[in-house]
Design a protein around this nucleic acid. Structure first.
Length: 272
DNA sequence: ATCTATTCCTGGCTGC
DNA sequence: TGCAGCCAGGAATAGA
């Protein structure tokens, strides 16, 4: 599932090939994944040029310039979404719901999404909905993180998954960061000691940066902008390892439901 | 404020 | 081999 490192990897890939290129035609086939009606999307995108590619939390933002000025094309990949730039001659994968045809090099940007949890939209700028999300986990400083956490009584795992608390973490990196910091997922945010909060802040940063360096985690469907899998799934210490031995202490990793999400943790390394 | 349950959706897995 | 049933989960939403 695409979380911050996967989205960052895609954005870097698209950022290397899209800016300056013009879209000749935009096709939207599956209304379910659209937040903006298809005809409006197609009309705005046809003839528009990509000026920049950015990440906002788990959202991919293509800054565009069209006939009537600048606007944004946004993609959230949900669970199984893929945004791949490839040769137009290449056969589209099944569940390809939309595509943007590029002016030169015979390439096309295709949106594929098996479960259709992803969403595509256009907007004049960054939608207000996104402006209300929490800070980026790689941008927030330690003091601010400690302040936000201290003010909340909800379980820390629930907070890490809440995009209004921090934007970009998902189930994989929440579990991995909590394990690295030695923090129990069910611990209330306000009850975590200051040293543990500090460890958690460092863990979030380090796990995200390492994951980006490895091109993200390919657990089910994630691929980068070139259609290739990431490698960080091989370095997961807890996610997907329930029942196996903890790599630090050898204890059997436990699986529990926290905040309605499957959660894997080490009962010995993650106290309290 | 925060919780749980529900909805969306399909592929992959289990068990019969 | 086939099929029913369940599970995974990001985010929005309803109701407690």
């Amino acid at each position: 599932m695409p979380e911050l490192p996967e989205v960052e990897t895609i954005v870097r890939g698209l950022g290397a090939c899209l800016p300056g290129r013009r879209i000749t035609r935009a096709v939207f086939r599956q209304p379910r994944v659209l937040l903006t009606p298809a005809p409006q999307m197609s009309r705005a995108l046809a003839g528009a040029t990509v000026t920049a590619v950015e990440r906002f939390g788990k959202h991919i933002v293509l800054r565009m310039t069209g006939r009537s000025g600048p606007f944004c094309f946004l993609a959230h990949l949900g669970m199984t979404g893929q945004l791949v730039c490839e040769a137009r001659s290449r056969r589209p994968r099944p569940h390809t719901h939309a595509w943007l045809e590029l002016a030169d090099h015979g390439e096309v940007l295709r949106y594929t999404d098996i479960r259709q949890f992803g969403r595509l939209e256009i907007a004049p700028g960054l939608p207000p909905r996104l402006a209300r999300l929490g800070p980026d986990p790689l941008a927030i400083d330690e003091e601010e993180f400690a302040r936000l956490l201290r003010a909340r009584s909800a379980r820390v795992k629930a907070l890490l998954l809440d995009q209004h608390f921090l934007r970009g973490l998902g189930n994989i990196y929440a579990d991995e960061a909590l394990f690295r910091a030695g923090v129990r997922p069910a611990a209330p945010g306000s009850r975590i000691s200051r040293p543990r909060v500090s460890a958690l802040w460092h863990s979030i940063r380090s796990v995200l940066q390492e994951a980006i360096a490895h091109g993200g985690s390919s657990v089910s469907d994630y691929v980068n902008a070139g259609g290739r899998a990431g490698a960080f799934q091989n370095l997961h210490r807890v996610y997907g390892r329930a029942g196996q031995a903890c790599l630090s202490c050898g204890a059997r990793l436990r699986r529990a439901l926290v905040a309605g999400r499957g959660t894997t943790f080490c009962p010995r390394c993650q106290r309290r």
